[in-house]
């Protein structure tokens, strides 16, 4: 039985600057990292492996240099890594991305039954949080988002119980397997790779699947398969703020003024 973790290599967005003249992102020299949420997705995959004896496969769609990220996943204990890389996959939006990823999951499922697909909650570059749900919808899997804890997995009954973290409350949900779960950072704390594992990973290789292997229709993938198109990237102008309660000493008074003002502006409501 498989647990498949989807990880994306992203530019370290805190190091990305916007070119003040052209308004585009300066990506030169910006290091790539594993999308922070996905490191937790990977960790959860490894924990499920240790607890229930799954085989853990990591998949990623991205340019060839993504292999570095996948090697790190192997160093941490993943059994296999698949890199989906082809020029034809490039320029994909969430629709096209989830298409390629779900096809890859299907393909993996041909050899071994897939029980759980784990995604991160969202990425730090695209930030849409749509890819996970996209995969679940396409594959007809149970869709469990905002998961902060996996309570139990019952392989016989093919059921999974998770806790979802919603605004101000938690929700315990039971769903049928196979399921896609999108995880929050709180779900676990990360492990650190041991040196022998790192050394082993250095020699390891990710399996490369290009579109020759995947055989997907060009109109469903990459730029052509994308429903959205980028027209312009810009940093929105920040309106200058206002100072409330200047000169007042009593904190209670100031907070009252602040709350009134926020309600006036419909930021808060009763």
């Amino acid at each position: 039985m498989l647990v498949i973790t989807c990880v994306k290599q992203v530019p370290d967005t805190t190091q990305v600057r916007v070119d003040p003249v052209t308004g585009t992102l300066i990506r030169d020299g910006v290091p790539f990292i594993i999308n922070p949420y996905d490191t937790h997705a990977l960790e959860e995959g490894l924990r499920l492996k240790e607890k229930y004896g799954f085989r853990t496969v990591v998949i990623s769609m991205g340019p060839p240099n993504t292999e570095v990220t996948l090697k790190k996943a192997i160093a941490l204990g993943a059994d296999e890594a698949v890199l989906l890389s082809d020029r034809a996959f490039g320029g994909a939006d969430t629709l096209a991305t989830s298409q390629v990823l779900s096809e890859a999951i299907k393909k993996l499922g041909e050899k071994e039954e897939v029980a759980i697909v784990i995604c991160g909650r969202q990425t730090i570059d695209g930030d849409t949080a749509q890819v996970g749900p996209g995969i679940a919808t396409r594959l007809g899997y149970s869709q469990l988002t905002l998961v902060d804890s996996i309570e139990s997995v019952d392989l016989k009954a093919k059921k999974i119980r998770v806790r979802r973290k919603l605004e101000g409350r938690h929700e315990i949900v039971e769903a049928k397997l196979p399921a896609m779960i999108a995880v929050l950072k709180e779900i676990n704390s990360l492990r650190y790779p041991t040196v022998p594992m790192r050394l082993m990973a250095e020699d390891s290789k990710a399996t490369l699947w290009d579109n020759k292997i995947m055989g997907l229709q060009e109109t469903t993938i990459g730029l052509k398969g994308s429903a959205t198109q980028v027209r312009k990237i810009f940093s929105p102008q920040r309106a200058s703020g206002e100072i409330i309660g200047e000169g007042l000493k009593d904190p209670k008074e100031v907070s009252r003024l602040l709350i009134d003002r926020l309600m006036e502006k419909h930021v808060l409501s009763l």
């Binding site: 370290d12 290091p31 990292i33 704390s189 990360l190 650190y192 790779p193 041991t194 022998p196």
Partner: peptide, 21 residues
């Protein structure tokens, strides 16, 4: 502890990651 067993106080994990990245 660190290299063979990845065993260390929790706060060092973030520290090691920051250093490496």
């Amino acid at each position: 502890l660190v290299e063979m067993n990845a065993k260390m106080p929790g706060e060092l994990l973030t520290f090691f990651e920051s250093m490496e990245q």
